[in-house]
Amino acid sequence: APTVVALYDYTANRSDELTIHRGDIIRVFFKDNEDWWYGSIGKGQEGYFPANHVASE
């Protein structure tokens, strides 16, 4: 899976979202739409995150 790096912190608001912190490396499983992508950090943490909070490595 491609990876991206978090540019900003984001705290999940729902159970299907992913909390990310600046500098996190996120594996992107799919891009649901322009605004929300689905991916994982490490083991067990996965969910939707805002695409405008990340950039290609």
Rank of each mutant, 00 (worst) to 15 (best):
A1D: 15
P2V: 14
T3H: 07
T3N: 08
T3M: 08
T3A: 07
V4C: 08
V4I: 01
V4P: 00
V4Y: 09
V5N: 04
V5D: 03
V5G: 03
V5S: 05
L7D: 02
L7V: 08
L7S: 05
Y8M: 10
Y8L: 09
D9N: 07
D9Y: 02
D9P: 05
D9I: 05
D9V: 02
A12K: 11
A12E: 03
N13G: 10
N13L: 13
N13H: 10
N13W: 05
R14P: 01
R14L: 09
S15C: 08
S15V: 09
S15Q: 11
S15N: 11
S15W: 08
S15G: 09
S15F: 12
D16C: 09
D16T: 14
D16I: 14
D16Q: 09
D16V: 07
D16L: 05
D16N: 13
E17T: 02
L18M: 15
L18G: 01
T19S: 12
I20S: 01
I20V: 10
H21M: 09
H21D: 01
G23L: 00
G23N: 06
G23M: 03
D24W: 01
D24T: 02
I26Q: 01
V28W: 02
F29R: 15
F29E: 14
F29L: 15
F29N: 11
K31H: 13
K31D: 08
K31Q: 13
D32C: 09
D32W: 11
D32R: 15
N33C: 10
E34S: 11
D35W: 07
D35T: 07
W36K: 05
W36F: 08
W36H: 04
W36R: 15
W37H: 03
W37P: 05
Y38R: 00
Y38I: 04
Y38G: 01
Y38E: 03
G39F: 00
G39C: 01
G39E: 00
S40T: 10
S40R: 11
S40G: 13
S40Q: 14
G42M: 06
G42L: 08
G42H: 15
K43Y: 10
K43S: 13
K43I: 09
G44F: 07
G44C: 09
G44W: 06
Q45A: 11
E46W: 08
E46Y: 10
G47V: 01
G47M: 03
G47T: 00
Y48W: 13
Y48R: 09
F49S: 03
P50E: 07
A51N: 02
N52Q: 10
N52T: 15
N52F: 03
N52S: 09
H53L: 14
H53G: 06
H53V: 15
H53D: 01
A55Q: 14
S56P: 11
S56T: 14
S56E: 13
S56Q: 12
S56L: 12
S56K: 11
E57P: 12
E57K: 14
